[in-house]
Nucleic acid binder design. Structure first.
Lengths: 239, 239
DNA sequence: GAAAAGCAAGAGCACTGCTCTCGTTCGAGA
DNA sequence: TCTCGAACGAGAGCAGTGCTCTTGCTTTTC
């Protein structure tokens, strides 16, 4: 019953992950050293291999954890909006929540959305947690459409995307129209693009307040997904 | 008189860079090994340090080169459009040119837009070449406005962004209105975001034809920058 | 022609991931 | 309760890394 050894093992694993996360947070994923983790742990390096078969396996665990935390942050941001039917507000909250998490945990964001490690194919274990933060966005879209509101999308959907969209919908089992799903994915790319440009230093000599660019992105895509909801149709009106 | 030694030195440097680029192309930037380059070169590792003070310095050179090639690709794509006044066509050509370069050179794209190396601050030398591909886009916007056409932007510009935009315009010395510049930057983030999601594997179980998502992004942002130009205002019309 | 600078080589340091072997310790089944 | 196998930590070791320093040799410059 909850074997002593098992419990100890779980504890050691948790400690390894904790120390590894610390190391990643302050030196980046590339600098993660199993030997250093072992030293911090008061162990010899070979002992760590009892718990993780390789450095990559440890990294995979960190990736899974990070995806989970990101998903958690997104969910919390969504939940912070009291009026559940205020979809634009939820959109803003979620996207800003994602960005804030990225800013607070730059190394972990880089771990998830930066250069994949060479020859590293994301194992099955990651695809679940990886979808968690996108689920928050998808749910938002589904709820909005379920409430009867519909967004009039101006740009047509490229034909090649249509089959992808239907496949995706059936895979996820979430009822979102092709049109809204397409808009949502474009918005997703825009949000992640803005965050990556900011976090990876590409806005350095370009923009002093990256948050403002992000706000522009969120606003534009929000306007596309929830047209006419913000009092901002006229460019003259200031906000 | 083009000193013999100088010429030899330039040749060796070129060879080092060539081999390093090869290595990056097939194993990723993280796996770039000075010792391996030296071996391929038939040299001992310490000799390479006569030409590059550190691995980072060599990487910086590769980054500069890659930015240059990307800029070249963008320029070539732009130049391939004969009707210079067909701005939407040029927009499509440039963005697809950038994406194609990224697909053809994934490791180099990752080098530029992936995780920055830990504690590595992009040296001054990179900021010039880094701007080259964005210049192509900026020029497009400037030329369009110079031709008298104007884009009616629906979403207002966040106040915080306004000062950034004016600063940017004076820094670059390129005449683009705040409104268009803001739209352009959002579009830029969208394009780079779509490419990064695709190249870094985040579309894996999401979309089978990433090109279609990219096309949707290009189309939407094109529609925003050059409104009413494509015969696609009505969602019913197929393309 | 001599002094100075550039160059390649080699040895060496401190570090990495990972493997293998060796005693020890723990815990589940007989 | 005892035993035997599995789990464990330590240590040595291999092959590799970035980088430094010294030692001779060659080329350039004065």
């Amino acid at each position: 019953m909850a074997g002593v050894r098992e419990r100890a093992r779980a504890g050691v694993i948790a400690e390894i992950v904790r120390l590894a996360r610390l190391q990643v947070a302050e030196s980046g994923a590339a600098a993660l050293s199993l030997r250093a983790v072992a030293r911090d742990l008061g162990m010899v390096s070979s002992a760590v291999y009892r718990y993780f078969a390789s450095r990559d396996e440890l990294l995979t665990q960190l990736i899974i954890d990070s995806y989970d935390r990101l998903g958690e942050a997104a969910e919390a941001a969504d939940a912070s909006v009291k009026r559940r039917s205020d979809y634009p507000a939820r959109w803003r909250a979620i996207t800003h929540g994602i960005r804030q998490w990225a800013i607070d945990n730059p190394s972990e964001y880089a771990l998830l959305f930066g250069t994949p490690v060479p020859g590293y194919a994301a194992p099955q274990d990651t695809i679940g947690p990886a979808g968690r933060y996108t689920w928050v966005l998808l749910r938002l879209l589904a709820e909005m459409e379920a409430s009867g509101r519909t967004s009039a999308v101006a740009t047509p959907i490229p034909v090649a995307l249509r089959s992808d969209l239907t496949a995706l919908r059936s895979n996820l089992g979430i009822p979102v129209s092709d049109a809204l799903l397409a808009v949502g994915m474009v918005a997703w790319a825009n949000v992640m693009g803005a965050i990556s440009l900011e976090l990876f230093g590409h806005l350095h000599r370009v923009v002093d307040t990256p948050g403002a660019l992000f706000e522009a992105v969120v606003r534009e895509q929000g306007e596309r997904m929830f047209p006419g909801t913000t009092a901002s149709r006229r460019p003259s009106k200031r906000t």
